[in-house]
C-alpha cells in the first residue's frame, strides 16, 4: 500500500511540475510581448526626440496590444489559481465539466506543441460527482497524454462528459491511431493506482477509436 501511495505522490508531483512549467512558459511569452511593445514605445519616443512626429493612432494600437496581453496573462493566472486550489480539499463535490475544462485549458499549449487540437464537448448541465479533485485532474491528464499519442492523422482529441446511472464518465474520442498503439502499456501502474483510488474504471474500445473513464458518483461509496 505504501508503495502505491508513493507512486501516486510521485505521479502527482510530476503532473504538478508539468503543468506549472507549461503555465510559466505561457506567462514568459506574454511578458516577452509586453516587453517588445514597451520597447517599441520607447523607440517611438526616442524618434520623437529627434523630430519625428508621434502618431496618436500608433500609440493607441500599442496600448491596446499591451492591454490584450494583460488580459491574456490574467486568464492564465486565474487558471493557475484554480489549479493550485484543486489541492485545498482532498475530497469534495465537483462539476466534472469544470474539472475537464480546466485540464483542457492547462493542456492546450502542450497539445499544440504536439501539433494537436483538443475539442471538449461539455454537458450544458452540471455533472456532479464527489471525488478527489487533484487526483482526478492528474488522471485525466494521464489519459489525455495517452489519447494525444493515439490521435492519429486526424490530430484532434475529442473529450466528452456524460452523466451515467452510477455516476459520470469521460469519453476520449476520435483516436484514429488507437489501434496502432500497444495497449499493454496503458493503463500502466501509475494509472492503475489512480483508478483504484478514484473508484474508476477504464474501458478501451479500439473499434470505435475511443476509451471511456467511468467514475463513481461518490468516491467513498464505491
Amino acid at each position: 500500500m505504501r508503495d502505491n501511495l508513493d507512486t501516486v505522490a510521485e505521479t502527482g508531483f510530476q503532473f504538478f511540475g508539468k503543468m506549472t512549467a507549461s503555465i510559466s512558459h505561457e506567462i514568459k511569452n506574454v511578458l516577452a510581448i509586453i516587453n517588445e511593445n514597451a520597447g517599441l514605445l520607447e523607440d517611438i519616443t526616442l524618434m520623437a526626440d529627434r523630430g519625428r512626429p508621434i502618431e496618436p493612432e500608433r500609440l493607441k494600437t500599442l496600448a491596446q496590444a499591451v492591454m490584450k496581453q494583460i488580459s491574456r496573462a490574467d486568464t492564465i493566472v486565474k487558471n493557475m489559481n484554480r489549479f493550485a486550489h484543486s489541492t485545498d480539499e482532498s475530497i469534495k463535490s465537483v462539476d466534472l465539466n469544470d474539472t475537464l475544462e480546466l485540464v483542457v485549458v492547462l493542456s492546450n499549449r502542450l497539445a499544440s506543441m504536439r501539433g494537436l487540437e483538443l475539442d471538449p464537448k461539455l454537458q450544458k448541465t452540471p455533472v456532479k460527482i464527489r471525488t478527489s479533485p487533484f487526483l482526478l485532474m492528474n488522471f485525466i491528464w494521464l489519459c489525455l497524454d495517452f489519447a494525444m499519442d493515439a490521435a492519429g492523422d486526424r490530430k484532434i482529441v475529442e473529450l466528452a462528459t456524460q452523466k451515467t446511472e452510477t455516476g459520470a464518465q469521460i469519453r476520449f474520442r476520435g483516436l484514429e491511431g488507437l489501434e496502432q498503439l500497444p495497449l499493454d502499456t496503458f493503463p500502466a501502474e501509475r494509472e492503475r493506482n489512480l483508478l483504484n483510488i478514484l473508484g474508476a474504471e477504464l474501458v478501451v474500445d479500439t473499434k470505435n477509436d475511443e476509451f471511456v473513464v467511468k467514475l463513481a458518483a461518490d468516491i467513498d461509496k464505491d
Binding site: N29, A32, I33, E36, N37, G39, L40, D43, M47, A65, K68, Q69
Partner: peptide
C-alpha cells in the same frame, strides 16, 4: 510562433 511577438520585434529591429 507568437505572432504579436514576431510583429513587434520585427518592427523594432527594422528601426535598427
Amino acid at each position: 510562433d507568437e505572432e504579436e511577438f514576431v510583429r513587434t520585434l520585427s518592427e523594432r529591429l527594422t528601426l535598427r
